[in-house]
Design a protein around this nucleic acid. Structure first.
Length: 243
DNA sequence: TGGCTCCTCGCGTGTAGGTT
DNA sequence: AACCTACACGCGAGGAGCCA
């Protein structure tokens, strides 16, 4: 039994916190769930089908998504990539994106993927309180060099335990949580007039080079472009998410 | 579920060179 | 001058597997 993309599309329509899409090898949408339609500020699916990310997304983000798709079309699989998506109300939202080549009869026919919103932590988990302490430490010290080993010691857990519990409670590895904290801080500081170099140091990156790379990988655009984009208001009232 | 080892690979880093 | 990108290299993070 094989499930078609049409059937998956219908199923994913029911998930408001998950974007589902299929694109052909040229990067044109062949399927999109209603969550993506809404986040693009569009009315119906047909407004998306046949279009590419560069037509639907602002150039700064569309180009990054297209580059990601090109990698997948060559066979690369993207698993749980932590990304910032800017929703229609311009608020940033954290998502985990998965993309894989769509293979049919032995040939790659396109890209199939989902992007799910990062949910709330599981506060009922037995070690949640210990992890919360580690998280608080990370929030206070993200500007410093933090080793997972040190976090594990602080929680009284082995590294393997810490990672396992982090994934279960926060849906992220400790390293991803640290990146998230740093990028969030950077996005705040980019709205001030601090230089990119000073922001990179203030957020715990070794230099602005490492910062720019990480920022682009996560947000989809270089820091300078994000600064320009976040300074605009009316011109960019719809910066939706996908991946 | 916890603890441990092993191994792969992705990320951080430093540098150089190009671009704005 | 400030910023971005590409590349090479080393190391630590994280996955897999096993056992208790």
């Amino acid at each position: 039994m094989k499930i078609s993309a049409d059937e998956l599309e219908s199923l994913f329509d029911a998930l408001p916190d998950v974007v589902f899409f299929v694109k052909d090898t040229a990067g044109r949408y062949t399927h999109a769930n209603l969550t993506l339609v809404r986040r693009l500020g569009l009315k119906q699916r047909s407004d998306i089908i046949g279009k590419s990310v560069t037509e639907l997304f602002p150039a700064a983000m569309g180009g990054s998504y297209a580059a990601q798709d090109r990698r997948v079309v060559t066979g690369e699989v993207i698993e749980n990539q932590l990304e910032v998506h800017i929703f229609a109300n311009r608020a940033p939202g954290w998502c985990l994106t998965c993309k894989r080549p769509l293979v049919s009869r032995g040939k790659i026919r396109g890209v199939i993927g989902i992007s799910r919103d990062l949910g709330l932590p599981d506060g009922k988990h037995p070690v949640y309180d210990r992890l919360k302490r580690v998280l608080a430490y990370m929030q206070e010290n993200y500007a410093e060099a933090i080793r997972v080993q040190a976090l594990a010691e602080q929680a009284g857990l082995s590294i393997a335990q810490l990672e396992r519990h982090f994934r279960r409670v926060f849906q992220l590895t400790p390293q991803q949580v640290l990146t998230k904290l740093r990028i969030e801080a950077a996005m705040r500081l980019l709205r001030t007039d601090q230089t990119v170099a000073s922001i990179s140091m203030a957020c715990g990156f070794i230099d602005q080079s490492a910062f720019a790379r990480q920022f682009k990988a996560t947000v989809g655009m270089p820091p300078r472009v994000y600064r320009a984009v976040s300074g605009l208001t009316a011109k960019m009232d719809a910066l939706p998410s996908e991946g």
